[in-house]
Write a protein that binds this DNA or RNA. Structure first.
Lengths: 369, 369
DNA sequence: CGATCGCTGTTAAACGATTAACAGTTAAAC
DNA sequence: GTTTAACTGTTAATCGTTTAACAGCGATCG
């Protein structure tokens, strides 16, 4: 029955060649006569031989493992990234080992240690807070890695892939302002996350600039139920806002939930601009206007960058990739009389941003599952 | 400094002990004098030593890898399972390597091969179709494994974890029937998936039994947009149904999307019972009544079973675990005059089922993120 | 014609951990 | 006082690959 897993030696013996030849057949590092190759393949097939990655990796020092660390696999945003990475990696002959930090720095640290002991060929990580864990800094120069999403675009220690979060915040705010909204609340998860901070900053400062007052910012955390409670409580002490910008998919859920509980109609009573474009946002009667992050391109870019690093070594200068989000207009923003604001002239930079800001997209995203 | 990864030998030399002792310190297989242990730990710390899993695995034959295969990581249902498994596995000192088959049997097969070449300690798989891939059958007796969700509960080749899909379908149908609905459509993804088939069967046969006619079954596939199109087309040729049972989260989305497009009010015009309970279902004004699968318990049960197998070997008799889904009542089913139907007397089995069927749950699920 | 090269194949030494077998030391037992 | 047992530590073989070094053998070259 050949019950116990056969080794390369058995195959070699069965095919009447040396182990080196078998190895060459499978790795393709050296050419092998076609006849021999065939008999090796036949022998392998017959014995049910499969190469032992552990032995292979130990000897060669090379590894076909990509370590992926995310804060939470349950969040579709991260799950989608992992999914795309896994597909890409597999196509290039890598396997992916995942770990999730559950947004806890100490878990993150120990997961990282575990991942690193595989001596992976590369690492793609979404850190859980703004402070890069010590483990990463330590091995930064020896391991190809790229940091995604939850990173400050400034003093990065490695290649990064993010979206232009400040602009994304501005686009959301701008959309509301252009529809005549002034009473705007910004719902954030946690300002310690760099992308959230930047989105909030982008939105808040644009609103301040146009209206003269900084909007209220509500911290709802990363848990939907608790966020809904917080927002609900706030609405009981204050009037329901005319509009809210929800900077995260779970804050969006929190806000929606609280709004539903209070029977506040969208967009009649309060308008909403969501973040992260998911299928469920489009599927109901008043679809949600949202800022779509190009998840696929984020994953793709991260992979490309990692491949580059793995080829070229870790010496080359660190480079940040910044992608653009886009606005998907649906029905959740009420038009209070579209007084097109004067294009905030005078300031060249503002002009340029305003140009970028025309990011409206219409169709369904085929990239969103 | 200490650029190149140090081996156990360096640590041993630095601490002035043998490699065996270092190994014992880290594996804990044999006791080590406390003083020595400390100096070994210090040496390891100082040199930045981390055990090399490949070498460890090669030598010991044991491995701390759990292979996990799912059809699609992008689907929150599977992502949640993977996430829970990863957490559990990590707690027991295992690492998880994931692969997704993208619902394609040939991809599934090659991913499986890749996974197996790691010689994992265990495998948890959600097959993509009803036919178990040959790779699995082949290694069935040598590798602890458990099959989840997409498996027929009957002639399983390995331990399985599923929900009672037939009953789940019956509960959904029963809920509609009890609210006076007769014009019911069943929206399925793909009847080749055993759980879908069983849900459909459960619902359809109960409806047939109570109303005398078998309900229409619509196949919407696994892609939301295409499913929406299909359902939309169907509604143009027929009247919008009085109620629909959507047997999957993506069919739910398809149905909702088509309904929204046609501006059909829920539940005034058509009622809906969804499957899989996600946060977004509760967050809007008319929350969706849904059958909740106990995702967490599915994952937990799968893990427990796998642990058992890994301990006890693969000889013990195969055992299926069948969990119960529950009905979460919200606002998407209209009451057409609750004529409580006579408990379908005479049939003992039907009576028993009717008893089981009182599965209503009320609160939010804290297990749903 | 001898040297050189290209092409294929083999031999044998690693890779870094684990672990069976063994050995030294001290304490308890008889 | 010798035996036994309990601890704790070391030596060295070994896991299944990869790969540098080498070897055989036509063909090509000068």
């Amino acid at each position: 029955m050949a019950a116990k897993k056969p080794s390369i030696r058995e195959v070699a013996a069965y095919a009447g060649v040396s182990t080196a030849t078998v190895s060459n057949v499978f790795s393709g590092r050296k050419p092998v006569n076609d006849e021999l190759r065939k008999s090796v393949l036949a022998a392998a097939e017959h014995l049910g031989y499969r190469i032992d990655r552990a032995a292979s990796q130990l000897r060669s020092g090379r590894t076909r493992i990509i370590a992926v660390l995310v804060p939470d696999l349950t969040d579709t945003f991260f799950a989608t990234i992992v999914s795309r990475l896994e597909t890409q990696a597999f196509q290039e002959g890598y396997d992916v080992i995942v770990a999730s930090s559950h947004d806890d720095p100490s878990v993150e640290s120990s997961r990282l240690k575990a991942l690193l002991s595989w001596r992976p060929a590369g690492l793609i990580a979404v850190p859980c807070s703004s402070s890069i864990p010590a483990e990463l800094i330590e091995i930064e120069k020896t391991l190809p890695m790229v940091l995604v999403d939850r990173v400050a675009s400034e003093g990065a220690i490695a290649d990064t892939v993010t979206i232009d979060n400040r602009e994304a915040g501005e686009v959301a705010a701008s959309h509301l302002l252009e529809h005549g909204h002034r009473d705007i609340v910004i719902a954030v998860s946690d300002l310690d996350f760099p992308p959230i901070f930047e989105r909030a900053e982008g939105a808040a400062s644009l609103i301040a600039e146009r209206t003269g007052v900084r909007p209220v910012t509500l911290k709802l955390g990363s848990n939907m139920e608790m966020g809904a409670k917080t927002f609900s409580d706030w609405m009981e002490r204050n009037a329901p806002p005319g509009a809210v910008i929800a900077l995260t998919n779970v804050t969006t859920l929190s806000v929606l939930s609280a709004l539903a509980e209070h029977r506040i109609a969208i967009p009649d009573k309060t308008s909403i601009v969501a973040f992260d474009d998911y299928a469920w946002m489009a599927a109901r009667n008043t679809g949600l206007t949202a800022i779509r992050q190009p998840v696929d391109r984020i994953a793709e870019t991260a992979w490309k960058r990692l491949e580059l690093r793995m080829d070229k070594g870790t010496e080359a200068a660190v480079e940040p990739s910044v992608l653009k989000a886009s606005l998907v207009v649906r029905d959740s923003v009420r038009d209070l009389g579209s007084r097109k604001p004067d294009p905030v002239g005078g300031d060249a930079e503002a002009g340029a941003l305003a140009g970028e800001r025309v990011l409206a997209a219409s169709g369904q995203g085929q990239d969103i599952h």
